Computed example of a mutant assay.
Amino acid sequence: MGADELLSLAKTGDGEAFRDLVAPYHRELQVHCYRFLGSVQDAEDLVQETLLAAWRGIGTYEERASVRTWLYRIATNRCLNALRAGGRRPHDHAAHRPEVPLPEPSRRRPEPSWLEPYPDVLLDGIADQVPGPEARHEARESISLAFLAALQQLPPRQRAVLVLRDVLGFRAAEVAGILDTTENAVTSALNRARSALAKEMPDGGRETAPLPDSPRERRIVDEFTRAFETGDVAAIVALLTDDAWLTMPPLPLEYQGPDAVGHFLATVALCDGRRYSLIPTRANGQPAFGCYLRDPRTPIGHAHGVLVLELAGDRITAMTRFLDNSLLAAFGLPRSLRG
């Protein structure tokens, strides 16, 4: 059944036709909301709110824009409302207490980062979609942690304009319609957003990252896994770029450079003979791991968050350690390992 027929039936109150009409957009709407909110669960909640609002308003949908654009209009404004309300943030780890004192960071952000990793399995089929001709960022880059962390620093309105224009490729007139504003206002907000994003995004590296699951990527991941699981700080440091970052959302502390990262690993993460098991997965288009701290007295590994690597060339340019153990479930990983 074609989209026009599904739309006609949905307007008469046919719920099954409506579900078939919006189903192709569910996953891309989830990624869209994730870019705004930084949380998979919050993004899915907003998608459900979007689809409920669309169902309630389907009878008055005037078809002046495509169904896809109409859904993006609803989703974008739901995201902006959520950001203004400030209620969609993970509070459990805002007061995270480290087990040992943390060294002085290279940089201390004024606000915690509420970013969470996005499982690559949820990206299947989305990255292959061709964005509009106005897009400036490739699909892989626009879901990277570096891009999303920089995006979080933008005011909500600028965030919306940049995502709609430079990631999804909507035209200025379409974005103006989505946000109920003028094309001049869209252009002005976009220029400010691009300027701010350029200051936040790390220079270079993205173009030289090895392809996913390529031999080069697997070699780097294997070397890192061996070094981390054996507590070999020197070997980990040897894999880092000169400007590599270590971050631990939601903590606002950031460590840059091999010396700072190595000192943190030696005095905190791998101190006192701590050893980990790493279970490979993928997040935000990059290699990732479920981390499990080995219990020296039992054959059990206890959940210790999710670790995501960002690669450039043959080196690691960023290590992002997410402290929330509940994130493991989104990757199909257990809360503990045995043996």
Rank of each mutant, 00 (worst) to 15 (best):
L190K: 07
Q41N: 08
G285M: 12
V22I: 15
I143R: 15
L265D: 02
C291V: 15
R159A: 09
Y61N: 06
R194M: 10
E174P: 00
A176W: 10
L29D: 07
H93Q: 04
V237D: 13
A244D: 07
T60N: 08
F224T: 07
H26F: 09
L270C: 06
V308F: 09
T12V: 09
R226E: 15
R335L: 05
Q129C: 13
V308P: 00
D4G: 01
P258H: 11
V22H: 09
R84T: 02
V221F: 03
C79D: 08
L328V: 05
A238G: 15
M319I: 14
A196H: 13
L240W: 08
P212F: 08
L168W: 13
H26M: 04
T320R: 11
E138I: 00
L211S: 11
L327V: 12
L21E: 08
R136H: 10
T225Q: 14
E310F: 05
E207Q: 11
D243C: 00
V186I: 13
A135Y: 03
P110Q: 11
P287C: 10
T241F: 03
V163N: 14
L246I: 02
Y72D: 06
E62P: 00
V221C: 06
P156N: 09
A288P: 06
P131D: 13
G87L: 12
D203H: 10
G262R: 06
D4A: 13
S39A: 07
R68S: 13
F228E: 11
Y255R: 10
F18T: 03
G15K: 10
S277R: 15
F289Y: 14
R216S: 14
P155M: 02
R315Q: 14
P156C: 06
M201R: 15
P24G: 08
A234W: 01
V121M: 13
S66A: 05
T230V: 04
I316Y: 07
I74M: 14
L278N: 08
D4C: 01
L239N: 10
Y255V: 03
Q152C: 02
P110E: 10
P215M: 05
E49L: 10
A185R: 10
E111Y: 11
Y34E: 02
